[in-house]
Simulated scan of single mutants.
Amino acid sequence: MKMIWIAVIIFFTACTVREKPTARFLSHPDVAASCPYITHDAAGNLAISWIETDTADNSYIYYTVSADQGETFAAPVQVTGSAGVYPHDENLPKVLFKPDGSIIAMFGTEANDARNKYAGKVMYTQSFDSGRTWQPAMPLVTDTAGYDQRYFDMALLPNGEAAAIWLDNRKVASAEGSTLYFARTNGRNGFGDASPVVETVCQCCRTKLLVDDKGAVHVVYRDIINDSIRDMVHQVSVDNGQHFSPPVRISADNWVVNGCPHTGPTLGVNKTGLHFAWFTMGHGKGVFYCRSVDNGNAYTQKESLSGAPMAKHPQLTVGANGDVYIAWDEPVKVGDDFNSRIGFVHKSPDGKTISSSPLTSDSAYANFPVVGTAGNKVLVVYKQRVGKGTGVACQVLQP
């Protein structure tokens, strides 16, 4: 097993974020690495996954576990059942550790379907021996009428089973858009009981699934409203996904666009309520934030998080003390060209901004960040150019 490639490690405080340090790289050198994702294993240890594509164009999911809150990482594990995973930073693969010790890796592949040349297929593979071996990959949808599935998310339900949402071509309405589907696992039998949640969802932006500490299941996605408006919508279920509340916009941006934004919403929850971040170009441009203190009945007025109008791809997490951390990527001009850097904001539990500063230097090219927690630490993991390739870089922020 190859050892982790680690660059310089520099620690700094999350409250001031004065430094722009070079992060450690978790991916192997001389590969095209992308699509990082942060989660935790069944013991609560930090786990980070990503995709690597080698020079022979072979792509696999890898993941590493840290037993000391990001100080050190174990050698990466290759998810052998993920062969053929298609690297897509909005449709990034997810690894989920169930309480019974099994692991699920879900990922997108190309469908190669004549009915839609851009169609994708969502697959998943399971391990029942702590990642040593993996079952053959299974399609999330076996219905032959379903030829396009993508932009999925997974989360654990209170009973220890996994839930998944995704965008699907199957629908009744003739209007543009996809259908948001929901399914859950049944032990080692994998996913079943799939059911539609809502139709005419924007077909090109990632979705977000969150289960709060009371067991409520939240979904957030970009909807197509009145055939032309593409705004973010929230729904909640209090019966494990059997029924969902009607869709409600988190912000009336009224963004009219006949195209694919390719940047979805993010969501976190703490004792003060729900916290959202998203990209829009309606009534302002860039990454915005709002919250709801009444479980989605009403939402605060949106707040701009970045001065860059084309800031995109926000991701959000809630720390152990309830503080909210949001990262995104934004263009930055360097000479006559543009690079991409990671923006970052730290908010109090009630949404007040404590600090805001870029995490990466203007001279680097970094994008598609994800954020997560490990104990009282916050981590930001992102894709960064390395020579002619890309690596998955990690920064650990210590309050």
Rank of each mutant, 00 (worst) to 15 (best):
D337H: 14
K171S: 13
W166D: 05
D168T: 05
W166T: 05
D153R: 08
K20Q: 10
T144M: 09
P87T: 06
R222I: 10
Q69F: 12
S363W: 06
G241F: 02
W255H: 07
N112P: 01
N189W: 08
A277G: 05
G375T: 05
R341S: 11
Q69S: 15
D153L: 06
N169F: 04
P314A: 03
I229C: 04
D362I: 08
K347L: 05
T272E: 06
P369C: 04
P399I: 01
Y86F: 14
H218D: 02
F12E: 14
V197L: 04
N339E: 10
F107T: 07
D223I: 07
Y299F: 15
H243N: 15
K285Y: 05
S66G: 12
Y289N: 07
D168S: 14
M310W: 07
G120W: 01
N116L: 15
G319Q: 02
T80W: 06
K352A: 01
G351L: 04
S340W: 09
G268L: 00
K377Q: 12
T142S: 14
A145E: 15
A67Q: 14
D336E: 14
A114E: 15
F344I: 04
T125I: 07
I250K: 06
D100P: 10
K121C: 08
G101S: 09
A183K: 00
S27D: 13
R184H: 11
C394T: 07
H218G: 02
I6E: 15
N240V: 00
N169I: 10
G190C: 10
A43L: 14
I225C: 07
V31W: 03
S356D: 01
E199I: 09
H283C: 04
L267P: 08
E52F: 08
W328H: 06
V392P: 08
P358C: 03
T53A: 05
A216H: 12
I4P: 05
G146F: 03
W50C: 02
Q398W: 04
S340H: 11
T263K: 10
H234N: 10
D294R: 11
L156Y: 03
Y37M: 12
R170A: 12
I342N: 05
V332W: 02
M310I: 04
T16W: 07
M138E: 13
Y147V: 11
L46W: 01
W278G: 01
A252Q: 13
T390I: 01
D100T: 12
G268R: 04
F97G: 05
T360L: 10
D323M: 00
H262S: 10
A162S: 12
G131N: 08
T125H: 04
T317E: 02
M106H: 09
